[in-house]
Amino acid sequence: MERRTVLITGAAGRWGRRLARQLAKFPIVRVIGLDISPPERPIDGVEYIQADLRNPLLVELLRTEKVEGILHMVFTSGLSGGQGLLSPEDAFQTNVMGAMEVLAAANAAEVKQVVIKSTTMVYGAHVDNPLYLHENAPLRGIDGKPLLRHRYEIERFIADFRRNHAMNIAVLRFPGIVGASGASSTMRYLGQPTPPTLLGFDPLMQIVHEADVIGSLLHALVAEANGVFNVAADGVMPLSQMIRRVGRQPLPIFHPFAYAAERFSLVRNNRLAKQIMPFELDYLRFPWVADTTAMRGELNYEPRHTAEEALEAFRSSLRLQSYSDLLPKRKAYDGIQAFLNRRRQEDEA
């Protein structure tokens, strides 16, 4: 049986690491992880290559390794990562140019499937948004923060690229990601003691469980999906309800004040301000809920967790946040227990 090769770009990153771990479980799949920085904890069965994405040898690599699918997970916020702080120009190079080059190389090397992660924020939050935005809705999130602009540029490039090339490209757009790990801008926002909201505004919001992010990306790879799909959990709810479900209380701010403060570059570029308010204010004011009929239909993916479950998972993890030092011990205990149980069963059998 010939093994099939999948390349994960950004394999040391948050999503790349998890995808690699899931994919490595299948004996039929050979996983190559490409990242500019070495993985913190290498995963068994994954071959790591430490290299820059924008490398002329990428095509050569894809050809010689007979790569059939690429999970393109490189997207740097410019704030963190092995490289330390990236300048906006470097971030653009990595995010936008990197995606372009991966697509071009994949096409040249006749890769069958490319899967890219995007966000429903590219639709933009506007007063005249319909409540359920379909995939073909205009992308109006261009006034957003630079990172959103990168997503927008990538999406624009892919739409163009699609017209001239037959390669399968699946772009999955996710809303805010929530789960037990606590590592996403949405979770950092929701997890604050009192997440700021805009007084008198309470738009319907949508989220997705992190397990469904991984699940749908892998599903798109395996099912050889082609096109753009919104992937979100069932259950929209008002922002304030979401905050309350996490066990926090919203802190409403009179919106003209918030907008005025945002205009000052001192506030805008302040690290703390960015942490408190990782989104453009419009995203807390107007709806940007995506329609998921295509996810169920064409993509044929059924999310495993509802929005309530995702929030509950996050809430449980928040409750145990201050006991994080005890968790490994507990995990070890459970692991030994499971091992012993298994042994006992084997002995009996």
Partner: peptide
């Protein structure tokens, strides 16, 4: 409009757009 917008929404009113 602040306050009016969420109130209308919670009471079952929806913005007049063909898609809605």
């Amino acid at each position: 409009l602040p306050f009016i917008s969420p109130l209308l929404s919670r009471l079952g009113q929806v913005q007049a757009l063909p898609a809605n």
